[in-house]
Nucleic acid binder design. Structure first.
Lengths: 210, 210
DNA sequence: TTGTTATATCGACCGACGGTCGATAAAGCG
DNA sequence: CGCTTTATCGACCGTCGGTCGATATAACAA
């Protein structure tokens, strides 16, 4: 007895299950058969919807990046938040654990998920940089920021934020994080040419100061 | 007729060939059989020297990082070079194309070599950060640099330098590079708290200014 | 010289993987 | 009802990383 479903439904099922597995076990360590077992379909069905395992990964990354961009857009539109905080929150909204889901982080960017990682970073930068151009320009007009290369500065900040706190290239102890976050904010301030301490009020929101 | 060689010789042969293939075709797209064909050995011989394909990769990365660190050490010892230039040259010495080999870059960090990339970055940061601590401290004592978080600053600069210019996450056109390099130097200056333009003399060494 | 041990090499074999393909069942439609 | 389109199936394929017992050479001891 075949359970026949409309194409788009099946496709989303495959994407959801694959995403969970890729995030939990890593792309390389998730076999197509693993996915098939959970979705409960045959191999032919999988390859009826996707040309390859990698195509599934690419679709998932588009989803993840788009979700982050959506969160950022909502925040950036909210004129009730001070400009500086708006920008910082939009950047941090790319890392979902600040959005409530705490456990995911432990699994997501850890272990050997280099392929997901690299593709995500590339796509996220491409998507987020233009989004942040406007508020940053606004800040420059308001004399809050002073930059010669605003676009490149945004790129570097997004890059640093991701590499420092979402990857596992540094193996920091828990008690080192406050210092690392402060150092990161200090570097952001300097690159953006703000007054020193401009971001501190923002930092206190998270009670991260020692 | 078996060509019997001393263990270390074989091991180096395998490492050399593997490195060339990993760099040229990528780690994933290089099969153990590819290596066997060129070194002209049987599978058993390969696994007599290495427990896995990944162990070969790790050994290669140690080599690459160590070569870069050696180049950096030579430069940093040379007191005839002004301090700022010494530091910048040591950082750039991590990217071999500035050392003369131009073609390698095209192949090395391109395509889908995410595993080599990630492991290299991690190892390079671990090796290079302590090396740069001394000259940076020297610069702070001489009132050239002004940093609150020197170690984190070095980490960020190494990270940015690698991600911006050695990876393929940004797909820049050739004519964009001068601007990107200037923006990078500008950000370094700000993070390190130098006088603006401190690094320009250094930049001119490469004739990169427009 | 011969026996023994340590070192080095071989290649058939294995299970798992990503991916293909022709058969076939169900749905939609004139 | 016949025909096409859409969706599903699973046996099969080539390749891959990795294993293992056989075996040849070198090194050394008796």
């Amino acid at each position: 007895m075949k359970a026949i479903k409309e194409g788009e439904v099946r496709k989303r099922e495959i994407l959801e299950v694959s995403r969970e597995l890729f995030v939990k076990k890593g792309y390389d360590h998730t076999s197509v058969n693993d996915i098939l077992k959970i979705v409960d379909i045959a191999k032919g069905t999988f390859y009826y919807y996707f040309a390859s395992k990698e195509e599934v990964l690419e679709a998932i990354i588009i989803d993840i990046v788009e979700e982050g961009a959506k969160r950022a857009e909502v925040i950036l539109k909210d004129r009730s938040i001070p400009l500086v905080n708006r920008i910082m929150l939009a950047i941090m909204a790319q890392t979902p654990e600040f959005e409530g889901v705490d456990q995911i982080k432990e699994e997501m960017h850890k272990v050997e998920n280099t392929k997901l990682e690299q593709l995500y970073l590339k796509a996220m930068l491409k998507r987020m940089t233009p989004l942040l151009r406007e508020p940053v320009s606004e800040g420059m007009e308001q004399d809050i920021f002073h930059m010669e290369y605003p676009t490149e500065c945004i790129e570097s900040i997004l890059l640093l934020g991701h590499m420092l706190f979402d990857c596992d290239i540094f193996e920091w102890e828990m008690d080192e994080y406050p210092k690392k976050i402060q150092a990161f904010l200090c570097n952001i301030e300097r690159m953006m040419g703000t007054n020193e301490g401009e971001l501190n009020s923002f930092l206190q929101m998270f009670g991260q100061l020692p």
